[in-house]
Amino acid sequence: MGKDSMILTNTETILGKNIVEMYGVVNGSTVRAKHVGRDLMASLKNIVGGELKGYTELLQEARDEATQRMIAEARKLGANAIVNIRYSTSSVAQGAAEIYVYGTAVKVG
């Protein structure tokens, strides 16, 4: 791992490291709507059931984007790690989902 890479964990502390400074909560969110092409495939897939790969990827991309936004916010504060990360998903409208991620920005030594 590079020197300026952000350490992310969902534990309260970082194993093997000490937290020297705390900056408070940082968060990132993104609202994604389902996409027509993917939706069409999904509705075909719905007949036989099973995994909807298009949606799996869509939600994973959304989650990565939300995480990147959170990291950018933490970086602005001068943090080099984010601890106690939690993810949550809520559907805000028909066919759209909000991915929300939050955690505490800290500096570890």
Partner: peptide, 10 residues
Amino acid sequence: NGNAVMAVDY
């Protein structure tokens, strides 16, 4: 992390 979306069949 990991995720999966699963649908039911008819």
